[in-house]
């Protein structure tokens, strides 16, 4: 083998092992990489009340109730839902039917959030197009 062929083989094999090792590490640490749990995962997990974690999903339609500065709503993944209470300023994108990630503790079945973040999807369009799509029934997107 010529020297450059040796170097090529070495780089390809070494990189293959490196990729494999990285994949194994990421697989092993999946719990730590996941940013939030879904309501279903949360009900299965039953975390202790002192553990701080995040729950993510959609804000259930018609579940938002405001009393003074305290907001309560339900986060759903369409199979299960978790009630959330939060006191503070909500992001501009916080709406019913929209994605949300709340950080806090699960206390007696109620998720007490210290921070609420909005998560949006990958769809981008002008309001008129969204309206037209919804009217024609081609698409059931979140409300503007």
């Amino acid at each position: 083998m010529k020297r450059k062929h040796k170097r090529l083989t070495f780089v390809v094999i070494a990189w293959g092992f490196l990729a494999l090792a990285t994949a194994l590490v990421l697989f092993a640490f999946e719990e730590g990489i996941v940013f939030f749990y879904s309501p279903t995962e949360l009900t299965e997990k039953k975390p202790p009340a002192e553990q701080r974690l995040r729950v993510g999903g959609l804000v259930e339609e018609g579940s938002v109730e405001k009393s003074g500065t305290i907001v309560s709503f339900r986060v759903t993944d369409l199979n299960n839902s978790v009630p959330v209470t939060y006191e503070g300023i909500l992001p501009d994108l916080f709406r019913e039917g929209q994605g949300v990630v709340a950080e806090g503790r699960l206390v007696g079945g109620v998720f007490v959030a210290a921070e609420v973040l909005a998560k949006h999807d990958e769809n981008y369009m002008p309001p008129e197009v969204a309206e037209a799509l919804k009217k024609s029934g081609q698409w059931q997107g979140g409300s503007p």
């Binding site: 990421l26 939030f36 993510g56 949006h120 990958e122 197009v129």
Partner: peptide, 24 residues
């Protein structure tokens, strides 16, 4: 795609074509 993230998934380079209106 592999993990839950706050960041949205891809809008342009994705299976099934871009989910972004042509004006954008």
């Amino acid at each position: 795609e592999w993990w839950n993230t706050l960041h949205q998934p891809a809008s342009v380079l994705k299976i099934g074509g871009p989910s972004i209106h042509s004006s954008m």
